[in-house]
Design a protein around this nucleic acid. Structure first.
Lengths: 129, 129
DNA sequence: CGGAATCCCAAAAGATACTG
DNA sequence: CAGTATCTTTTGGGATTCCG
């Protein structure tokens, strides 16, 4: 994945005279930088404030350090997250979301609400069988 | 991927006394059924009304028939999409979103808005270099 | 047109172990 | 604690061809 700032888009849109909505392109662009299983949950986890590596790992439940490390680096590259090193012994590292990340607030909120609702629906449908 | 209705969740949440927010779980649950590069764009494409296989393919730009077919099946299983066969010659097949899909409206909207904005940001940052 | 069949690859993700 | 290293598995996704 090359999700750096000079290429953070989901490809060109072939918008000719056919019905290629900018909406589809918008969503594809969003998904291009926010892809995968972890980025959105991770960013959401950081909305409550900065957290340390291990803390994030616990909040996310079952992410391995390797994956978490990779995700954090990508998010840092794309300016969603800031990594801060505090020179204690042993060293303390915190991760913090940027202002740009905050522009995702609505997305995160809607997704969260929908997900909570979806879980209830599934559980309910299981009971009724 | 087993994204059927009896297992449409992103796993259990280990919520003990630690700070495991239901928000993270909500987002993970949502992502579990809406994963991948295509499901959200596809659902968005269908918000404007039913469409045929080939039409969807064109709207999405560069999805191959195999992938499109797979995505549609998964979405059908999870009750996001209805497949209708019209007995013309040759046969006509349309795909239509369900009411449950419409509960994703806000999510789709926010994601679209954010994506459009994100594209502008990237393009702008490219120019200023 | 609406797919299915086959082959293939790259990337995502997980397990496990280890280090400063 | 905050990661890295290695290895393996999974799956997502694409190319191409073919069929009723």
């Amino acid at each position: 994945m090359k999700t750096d700032l000079t290429n953070g888009l989901g490809g060109d849109h072939p918008c000719g005279q056919n019905a290629c909505s900018e909406g589809v392109t918008g969503i594809r662009d969003a998904l291009y930088v926010l892809n995968g299983k972890w980025k959105l949950p991770l960013l959401f986890a950081l909305t409550e404030g900065p957290a340390r590596f291990k803390d994030i790992q616990r909040t996310l439940g079952d992410i391995t350090p390797k994956i978490l490390s990779k995700e954090l680096k990508e998010l840092e590259l794309n300016e969603f997250v800031i990594r801060r090193v505090i020179p204690t012994v042993p060293v303390t590292v915190t991760y913090e979301i940027t202002d740009y990340s905050r522009s995702l607030q609505q997305v995160l909120h809607e997704l969260k609400v929908w997900g909570i609702n979806h879980r209830q629906r599934i559980v309910a449908s299981r009971k009724s069988k």
